[in-house]
Design a protein around this nucleic acid. Structure first.
Length: 639
RNA sequence: GUACCCGUAGCUCAGUCGGAAGAGCAUCCGCCUUCUAAGCGGACGGUCGCGUGUUCGAAUCACGCCGGGUACGCCA
């Protein structure tokens, strides 16, 4: 999608339109099954060590009784159906086969047997299911000691020793970060955090769109209008200035062959390393980066590598030579291609283009060169490309070429694709129905990311002032920023990434229900209790945590680890988001239960009881705070 | 035409190897003497797009349709 202020300003496609949003997974790759939004890698067992603390003894007992391997039982535990007051359900279908019994009979048998060997366990057979309830105190004794570190619930060693190179955000120079850039940026940011939490080393790469024929037009326009650096610097917004320049230049060049030629000449000069062209290009790039950094700072996003397309412009020789050496390229209509239908198979309908008829290189070539460079520099084991699904074909093609080149990493390249952002359009123009439309809102304007964030902050500020009149202005502003941005970011992360995002201001900026602020509010409530408790080391006795509310909070915490590992394996932050919503929900129920019952409060009269509950507060606050951080949201202590 | 994404409650979406249909919003009814009501409880609401097949069992798997979206040789 493009970033022109008005659609009519958008240049015709035939020459030098700016690239669409840069940069996708392979279709035939087993890690990305066709119809599943949240794929789980087959063959690789998803672990849940934290929850295993509870289920292991049960699995062992069942396995022992039925004479099967414990691992055959461990994976079966499932959430109970709604309406059954149980913690976990054990479906007996598969085990019934091994036991030579009908599922309901086995369920009945296990329901009678298990409580005799597992202390504190109650079990009820409901048809073919055996529903299990643990005693709250036992759950706390099993889990709380493992949660002494605040972040322990969201740590895993699944990726220890491995490195992931994550390519995300990737905006184009001389254009604004449009709202849709939030997708790649925050998905990539969340994945980088989650990979790290799962033990991976990560490299965050911003593959800037800093090259292309559009810069020839921009330079040509700059020279024609006699603009100066001072004029650029004096602009309120340098990117807007450059954008407007581009629009004027392309308007002027429309139907003016001389200007078109001039733009082409500047493109060529830029490619040839002409000093003046390079100087102007660098100025445009610096101005753009400064603006990008303002937005990244708001979002709290950082990068380790900023090598853009321009960096690789003169580094494609070796890959072209290697392709030729290995007889993988051929000529077709003057262009150099890799004949994928012939070399790989008929799942490919067309060849991959490697070199244009005029000798210029292409997107795929750059990605191949960049990938070699990254793998060498960072010794990465896996590479993620967080790019919209519209570019799937591009990635399947060059991934296939990497395989033909026998790259050892070829099987570990992942296109983390996502759906487009659609805006509600009330007035789409003559003959068109109102509806969801790509990129633009009612006035036909492209929504800029910064504008959306600022609007969200403004709306949050109104509520913050109302709810926290005693806080000083600076703290109110900080909270408004955290909550406003949290709402927008979480709105983008909470659903499966392959869905198209339907953006309405009112929905994205909602502060109640399943939202970022909902998570943040639960966190703030826990912090508030800790402040009031005003205690240091806590040595509460887990056995005193005997209510179902407390048990449910613990179980919700214990499920986070599994959610984290699934998030990493499926490259799907919405899995973590869902687990955090579940946790925040249990926290809210727990804390609210204290409203009408003083004895149920954390800060109650019974000091020992209170100390035990404070341990749970600390564990929950640590887990929720860390979860927010992993998703890229702030965790306010007050709101 | 080919490939990919999507289709589940009025709206927006979850649904973890195939095993018990879920949430938020909206609407309606309750709960502030509050460890923070940005919260909690309840009600209402569904032929899981359609069909066939596989299976003891299908929202889930296979095949075929229908509908919406996206992409398909010298842009990125």
């Amino acid at each position: 999608m493009d970033g022109w202020a008005n659609p009519q300003d958008r240049p015709p496609l035939k020459y030098g339109s700016f690239p669409t949003s840069r940069r996708p997974v392979s279709p035939d790759d087993r890690t990305f099954p066709r119809r599943r939004a949240c794929p789980v890698v087959p063959g690789r067992r998803i672990r849940r060590p934290m929850l295993d603390l509870l289920t292991r003894p049960v699995a062992a007992a069942v396995a022992d009784r039925l004479n099967v391997a414990p691992t055959q039982v461990a994976g079966l535990f499932a959430p109970p159906a709604k309406g059954f007051a149980a913690d976990l359900a054990l479906p007996c279908f598969q085990l019934a086969k091994a036991a030579g019994k009908a599922p309901p009979a086995l369920a009945t048998d296990l329901a009678a047997f298990l409580p005799t060997v597992i202390p504190g366990l109650t079990a009820t057979a409901v048809g073919p299911f055996c529903n299990l309830s643990f005693a709250a105190g036992n759950v706390a004794q099993a889990l709380l000691p493992a949660l002494a570190e605040p972040t322990a619930a969201l740590r895993s060693s699944a990726g220890a020793g491995r490195t992931a190179a994550i390519d995300f955000s990737s905006p184009n120079i001389a254009k604004h970060l449009a709202f849709h850039h939030i997708r790649s940026t925050m998905l990539g940011n969340a994945l980088a955090h989650c990979y790290q939490a799962a033990g991976w080393k990560t490299v965050r790469i911003n593959f800037l769109g800093d090259w292309g024929t559009a810069f020839g037009r921009l330079i040509s326009g700059w020279k024609r209008e006699g603009l100066t650096l001072d004029q650029l610097r004096a602009a309120d917004d340098q990117v807007t200035f450059l954008n407007a320049l581009y629009v004027r230049a392309s308007q002027a060049a429309k139907g003016d062959a001389a200007l078109e030629d001039d733009a082409r000449r500047w493109s060529k000069k830029l490619e040839d390393g002409d000093a003046e062209a390079r100087h102007l290009w660098q100025i445009f790039k610096d101005a753009s980066l400064a603006e990008f950094q303002r937005v990244y700072a708001l979002l709290g996003v950082t990068f380790d590598s900023w090598k853009g397309e321009a960096y690789y412009e003169d580094k494609m020789g070796p890959i072209l030579a290697e392709l030729a050496d290995k007889n993988l390229t051929s000529e077709d209509q003057g262009a150099t291609i890799v004949d994928l239908p012939k070399l790989v198979g008929k799942q490919f309908k067309k060849p991959a283009l490697i070199k244009r008829a005029d000798g210029g290189t292409l997107y795929a070539t750059r990605d191949l060169a960049a990938c070699d460079d990254r793998m060498r520099e960072f010794a990465a084991d896996r590479a993620l490309y967080v790019v919209d699904l519209g570019q799937s074909l591009h990635f399947t093609e060059w991934f296939a070429v990497a395989k033909l080149l026998n790259r050892p990493f070829a099987g570990n390249l992942r296109h983390v694709g996502f759906g487009v952002v659609l805006m509600w359009n009330d007035e789409p123009g003559e003959g068109l129905e109102p509806g969801w439309a790509k990129g633009r809102t009612r006035a036909g304007k492209v929504m800029l990311l910064r504008e959306v964030l600022e609007e969200a902050i403004d709306r949050a500020a109104v509520i913050v002032r109302e709810k926290n009149p005693d806080l000083d202005a600076a703290e109110q502003a900080t909270i408004a920023r955290q909550v406003g941005i949290g709402a927008v970011v979480f709105n983008d992360l909470k659903n499966g990434r392959t869905n198209d995002v339907k953006f309405k201001f009112e929905d994205a900026l909602r502060f109640d229900g399943e939202t970022g602020p909902y998570l943040q509010f639960a966190h703030a409530r826990l912090c508030s209790i800790e402040r009031k408790a005003n205690v240091g080391d806590l040595a509460g006795d887990p056995a005193l945590l005997t209510s179902d509310h407390e048990k449910n909070v613990l179980l919700a915490i214990a499920k986070l680890q599994n959610a984290l590992e699934r998030t990493v394996e499926a490259d799907e932050p919405s899995l973590l988001a869902a687990a955090l919503l579940n946790l925040a929900g249990e926290i809210a129920v727990w804390l609210t239960s204290g409203n009408s019952n003083l004895d149920a409060r954390v800060l109650c009269l019974d000091a020992a009881q209170s100390a035990a509950r404070l341990r749970l507060v600390r564990a929950a606050r640590g887990a929720l705070g860390e979860g927010l951080r992993l998703l890229g949201l702030a965790a306010p202590e007050r709101m």
